[in-house]
Simulated assay, not measured.
Amino acid sequence: METRLVPYETLSNAQKQQLDTLQVHPEQLAFSGDIYCALNSLLVNPNPASVKGFVLLAGDLPVAFLLLKRPPCLPHWADEHSATLHALQVDRAQQGRGFGKACLQALPEAALLAWPQIKGLELSVDADNVAAMGLYLTTGWVDSGEAYRGRIGHERRLRWVLNPQR
């Protein structure tokens, strides 16, 4: 099935209603949060240019969601010239079909369209989240070798360089 990563604001009202029903497995909530919290942080942000939501559509059906953040909303560990990935969520009924990988493969282009000046993408992932670590590393993210104490456990910082020539 054809997929595409689109900005949240381009969704139709029907697609936004479908996205509102996205659910992750209960054991994933600690890592990704739920769609309500993710959309709330997107929609109530006082600086909408610094937080953008993206939705993976399979055909016309929303199957995954993620947030990207820029200054002044970057976390303390991020480089100011990057965008950071947050709240990646694939609907539990759609997991195991490659939609997480599709999000990550489409993300560099989507991020550069949103913010052409960024030099990279960064994320922080719980070191015990084996599935997420595997997904990120197999799609080209590089472990920085840095870890810090996060809200759940130790978190690893991963990076994706967008254009080394810039």
Rank of each mutant, 00 (worst) to 15 (best):
E2I: 10
T3V: 11
R4K: 15
V6R: 02
Y8I: 01
Y8E: 07
A14H: 14
Q15P: 10
L19I: 13
T21W: 02
L22H: 05
Q28S: 07
A30D: 13
G33V: 10
D34I: 12
I35W: 05
I35P: 04
N40F: 15
S41I: 06
L42A: 06
N45R: 10
V51T: 14
K52L: 09
F54H: 10
V55F: 06
L57N: 05
D60Y: 09
L61Q: 15
L61Y: 05
V63N: 09
V63L: 10
L66F: 03
L67T: 10
L67R: 15
L68C: 12
L68I: 11
P72S: 07
C73A: 11
C73N: 15
C73P: 00
P75V: 08
S82T: 15
T84K: 05
T84S: 14
L85H: 00
A87T: 08
L88R: 01
Q89G: 04
Q94A: 14
Q94L: 03
G96Y: 09
R97S: 10
F99A: 02
F99Y: 15
G100F: 02
A102G: 01
C103M: 10
Q105P: 00
Q105N: 07
A106R: 04
P108H: 01
E109A: 10
E109S: 09
A111F: 05
A111M: 05
W115P: 04
P116L: 01
Q117H: 13
Q117E: 15
S124V: 09
S124G: 15
S124Y: 00
V125N: 07
V125A: 13
D128N: 14
N129Q: 06
N129C: 07
A131N: 10
A132I: 01
G134L: 02
L135G: 05
Y136A: 01
L137M: 14
T138G: 00
G140T: 08
V142Q: 11
E146K: 08
Y148V: 02
G150D: 12
R151A: 14
R151G: 11
R151E: 13
R151L: 12
I152N: 13
I152F: 09
R156Q: 11
R156L: 14
R157A: 06
W160V: 00
W160K: 08
